[in-house]
Amino acid sequence: MRLIPSFTALAPFLILLGSCVGPGAQRPVTRPASVPAPASAPARPSPAAPAPASTPQPAPVASGWQYRPVAPGGWTYRAEAAGSSAAFGPGVADAQLTLRCDRASRRVSLARAGAGAGQGALIVRTSYGAASWPATVSAGAAGQLVAFRAASDAGLDQLAYSRGKIAVEAAGAPMLIVPAWAEISRVIEDCRG
């Protein structure tokens, strides 16, 4: 005796089979005869062949300071009797940039080593923009330009919260680009606390 499966037993399988049809296999849409078919798009020329790989092109030069690499070295935090300091450079003895808190006067100083003699300004660039900080030559270290700010100055917040990098410019010295690490915030908070 031959068994013929009933339609109700095959229904779930037919539904599953119908769901396997992808979007490319759908029925074509028929248009009424009165609607003209759209005109075919004009043929596009083929793209030009790429330049041969034998002549390498130089990498584009990044013009913005934020795209340049940071100077070699790192930040070092140090607690001091009068406050605290953070120095950036390859070593503590040869720091290129120093941020120092003087708790008694509630001022923060920013010193750039290797800057020109005389008075001038430190141009401090952060992700918030650029600011000119009036500076003078340090009495203690030759060739060091120092700028002072009150601990409550909003410019220090821009220094602490800059995204990724900070640049410091001084007349007679190359631009110094340093990473914005937590040591900066620590010195500022020491002076505010």
Rank of each mutant, 00 (worst) to 15 (best):
T8D: 07
A87L: 05
C20G: 13
V35F: 15
S132Y: 03
R78G: 06
A82M: 06
L14K: 03
T55Q: 08
P47S: 09
G83L: 03
R78T: 12
P134R: 07
R27M: 13
A11S: 00
V61F: 07
A49P: 06
T55R: 09
G120I: 05
A33E: 15
P52R: 11
R103G: 07
A142T: 13
G22A: 06
G89N: 02
A139Q: 03
R27N: 12
A79F: 05
Q66A: 11
P134E: 04
Q96R: 14
D102V: 00
A48F: 03
A11N: 00
R112F: 00
A25G: 12
F7D: 07
P72K: 13
G114W: 06
L10D: 01
Q119R: 12
W133C: 01
P38C: 12
P32A: 15
W65M: 08
S46Q: 09
G120N: 03
V35K: 15
L97P: 00
A135Q: 01
L110E: 01
A48H: 04
A53T: 09
A139T: 01
A93S: 10
S40C: 14
A81W: 11
A53W: 08
F13L: 10
A121W: 04
V124A: 06
A62N: 13
A131C: 04
W65P: 08
A111L: 00
F13Y: 10
S34P: 04
A121E: 10
A71Y: 10
A130R: 08
R31M: 15
L99I: 11
A43N: 10
A71F: 11
S63M: 12
S138N: 01
R103F: 05
S105N: 07
A95Q: 02
S85A: 12
R125G: 04
A104D: 06
C20T: 12
A87F: 00
A142H: 09
A87C: 03
